[in-house]
């Protein structure tokens, strides 16, 4: 989802937004806070997922603010964009430290509230399946919005030719703000969805950015379908490497990244983007 946010914002606004990792981290931290408070206030545990997603979506309200900060660098060299968005990563890290402290943050005992699913000898937490399903639904939803709605057509037109879209009367500022907010929501909701099963730390933003970039490089900048397949590829290869030869866990991803950069620099799905 972080990679999808990165792709969306790059595809439309042509900006490499490193802060997408921070949105993921903020979503996770904020998710812990809202769910913990809601449970303390008497929320039935099975409803925590609703609060979690709502929290992630609400946090996406920071999107338009950040987008406003980025406006001065839209037409400037990519290096300015990278420096500015990396500065945002560092600022968000300090804001997070100020609000939530520097220790790893975890959610209480809600991970198994939906139980476990036993398939033969394997036991899978139902929550994991919910997250997988949510990821699939969000991907389908994104596909529907981008290909079947008026907003999606405008977004695609803007991604194809900004000047022409503007000449035809598209309010570019509004589209940019909406697209950036959508990209932000993908990050914040992604972070919120993952946190019940794991922990979040201050440096998670940078870790996520690196993986998201690997996905984007493999799939090709600007390709949403490619991002979906690239993310699956990275996840599955990582899992296979851990099971088969753990030493290759990290290497395997970067071997593919290097191979793609050498053999198909535009990415595996670059044509789909065009």
């Amino acid at each position: 989802m972080v990679a999808a946010g990165l792709q969306l914002v790059f595809g439309v606004q042509k900006i490499v937004n490193l802060a997408c990792g921070s949105f993921y981290a903020l979503g996770a931290y904020f998710g812990v806070t809202v769910v913990t408070r809601a449970l303390a206030a008497g929320l039935p545990p099975p409803l925590f997922l609703v609060v979690l997603i709502a929290g992630g979506l609400a946090l996406a309200a920071i999107g338009p603010i950040v987008e406003r900060v980025l406006r001065p660098v839209y037409d400037r060299d990519e290096s300015f964009q990278i420096i500015l968005t990396f500065a945002l990563v560092l600022m968000f890290e300090d804001i997070t430290r100020f609000i939530w402290g520097s220790s790893p943050y975890q959610m209480g005992n809600v991970y198994l509230v939906y139980g476990q699913w036993k398939i033969g000898r394997l036991t899978v937490p139902v929550y994991n399946l919910i997250v997988i399903a949510a990821g699939g639904l969000i991907a389908l939803g994104m596909g529907f919005v981008l290909s079947r709605t008026r907003f999606g057509r405008i977004v695609r037109a803007t991604a194809e030719n900004r000047e022409m879209s503007e000449a035809l009367g598209v309010d570019m500022r509004r589209i940019y703000a909406r697209v950036f907010t959508l990209g932000t929501a993908l990050g914040t909701v992604g972070g919120a969805l993952v946190i019940p099963a794991t922990a979040v730390t201050l440096d998670v933003a940078v870790e996520v950015i690196v993986e998201a970039f690997a996905v984007v490089v493999i799939s090709g900048l600007g390709s949403m379908r490619g991002t979906f397949v690239g993310a699956l590829l990275v996840g599955v290869l990582k899992a296979v490497a851990i099971a088969a030869y753990p030493e290759l866990e990290l290497l395997v991803i970067y071997v593919i990244v290097i191979a793609v950069l050498v053999l198909r620099p535009a990415g595996l799905f670059a044509r789909a983007a065009a």
């Binding site: 790893p104 899992a239 851990i242 753990p246 866990e249």
Partner: peptide, 16 residues
């Protein structure tokens, strides 16, 4: 298994 220090997602390791 040798996850790097600070790993917060052990899903694949647990599966292994």
């Amino acid at each position: 298994l040798w996850p790097k220090l600070g790993t917060t997602d052990f899903t694949a390791h647990v599966a292994a």
